[in-house]
């Protein structure tokens, strides 16, 4: 762990009954970099994401987070109000199913503005302006600011979730299969959007995906998990092009080429 790591986990262990979900996992993340966690079902990648983001408590181990002032916090020792506030401000969480994260009965503008209102903003005009600005940044037509998410396509819903998450300028975003539920034709534009937003806004991201191509496109570094164990970690293109571990070699060689 160096002086500028944004997130650092050490010795994470978690069992679900007899099943090991995380076995002595360590992770570091620096500002502005994207880390992909890949693995097949049951690998523990989503569990790791949930432990890192404080949503799930490990049996053992610690997750350190460095706040904008440079101070370190033990994520699982934080009082619940602080963690919840963190999730609405400096952190973001993009879920695989945007319908679970959005308020489907609230307009697009209301969805994007909610975090601002939660932080105490009380000027309707300003909130709506910021919402419109963010809709543009995620390439949703600004004229749809008052429309209901019910009327949006899957790709638009995911972009709306991203806007809703980024409105408070988080420095760290957790993403759980962000393109997972989408049609292939829609995934490409969304991947490119995520890539450019992350680069432009210097956001650090932890991205869980089972799709190696997504990891290659978005991530600087990659962590490969198998049954709760990190079997290989390193530079994304190096791990995918020159895999050292047997399981990584198996994963890489199994990918279908269209």
């Amino acid at each position: 762990m160096t002086d500028d790591t944004l997130l650092s986990a050490r010795g994470l262990n978690l069992r679900f009954g007899p099943v090991p979900a995380l076995v002595d996992v360590a992770v570091d993340l620096w500002p502005g970099e994207v880390l992909a966690i890949v693995g097949e079902s049951g690998s523990g990648k989503t569990t790791l994401l949930n432990v890192l983001s404080g949503r799930l408590r490990p049996d053992d181990g610690v997750v350190w987070y460095r706040d904008p002032a440079g101070k370190l916090h033990d994520v699982h020792a934080m009082p619940a109000p602080k963690l919840r506030a963190l999730h609405r401000s400096d952190w973001g969480f993009v879920q695989q199913d945007p319908r679970a994260a959005l308020r489907m009965g609230v307009s697009a503008g209301g969805n994007v503005g909610e975090r601002l209102m939660a932080q105490g903003l009380r000027h309707y005009g300003n909130i709506r302006e910021q919402a419109i600005d963010w809709l543009r940044q995620v390439e949703i037509d600004a004229a749809r600011v008052d429309d209901m998410p019910r009327t949006f396509s899957g790709g638009m819903l995911q972009r709306l979730q991203i806007a809703r998450t980024l409105v408070t300028h988080p420095r760290l975003v957790f993403m759980d299969e962000p393109t997972g539920g989408l049609d292939v034709s829609v995934q490409a534009r969304l991947l490119d959007l995520i890539r450019s937003l992350v680069a432009r806004l210097n956001i650090a991201a932890v991205l869980v995906t089972h799709d190696l191509a997504v990891a290659r496109l978005l991530a600087h570094r990659i962590v490969v998990m198998q049954r709760g164990v990190v079997v290989e970690a390193g530079l994304t293109d190096q791990v995918l092009d020159d895999p050292q571990h047997a399981y990584t070699q198996l994963l890489v060689s199994s990918v279908l080429q269209a």
């Binding site: 109000p81 209301g110 209102m117 939660a118 009380r122």
Partner: peptide, 19 residues
Amino acid sequence: HALAEYGAMHVRLYEDITR
């Protein structure tokens, strides 16, 4: 209520003003 997280109520008012 315990955490004074009332953003959702302001969203409700926001929606009224929008509509």
